[in-house]
Amino acid sequence: MRLRIQTPLIFALLALAVWQVIVMAADVPEYLLPAPSVILGTVDRTLAVQLAVTFVEALAGFLIAGVLAFGCAVMFVRFSTLEQGLFPIAIAVKTTPIVAVAPLLVIWLGTGWWSKIVAVILICFFPVLVNAVKGLKAADAEYRELFQTLGASRAQEFRKLRIPYCLPYLFSALKISSSLAIVGAIVGEFVGATQGLGYLIMVSSAHLETATLFAAIAAAALAGITMFYVIGWAEERVIFWHGGNMD
């Protein structure tokens, strides 16, 4: 684990050093490409606050989307009529670009937290739904026959077979959604916000404060990476049996 972090870290530091040297040697104007040292100099409390705002929006939307999508998936698999009726609608919602919908969300929900959280929910919902439906159906027919011979109810079949079987599928969906969550929050902030990384990016680009812009971009990346790794860490602990045989 240590090695896996160390090696990329060394490469990243090396790249930053090269960047610093080139910018200084070629005397690149700061509004075009600021040196890493200048970017680091713009990191302050304000940036941390904006990062926190975006992170909380993304996390809230992500969690709500996860719970909603998993609940929907269970209902879809339990009642196939629901799946037939609602799945096409879910696809239609998914194919609508979030950027196109975001202004509408601001009109409806204002420039506060909720327009961003709903944007995050919209973007995170679909991957979780699709994967969870797939995972809930993934248990072999033979496993279901086993539960039938044991006289299990539908609820028991879900609790003891289908849901645990679905967990690996769920976690891969959560990983995809975790990076999308930051995207959703920033798109929401672009359209109308008074705080958050998206807001900071808009303002600093308008003022040609390129160093601040870079710092905001790096912070957004950091937020995405953090969420991704936290979920990966949880996955390794929850799905200890994966890689073992599932049949």
Binding site: E142, L146, P164, F240, D247
Partner: peptide, 13 residues
């Protein structure tokens, strides 16, 4: 009645 399948069908978790 007890039924045993060709595969063990143990729950991996």
């Amino acid at each position: 009645v007890g039924f045993m399948f060709q595969k063990p069908l143990l729950l991996p978790w």
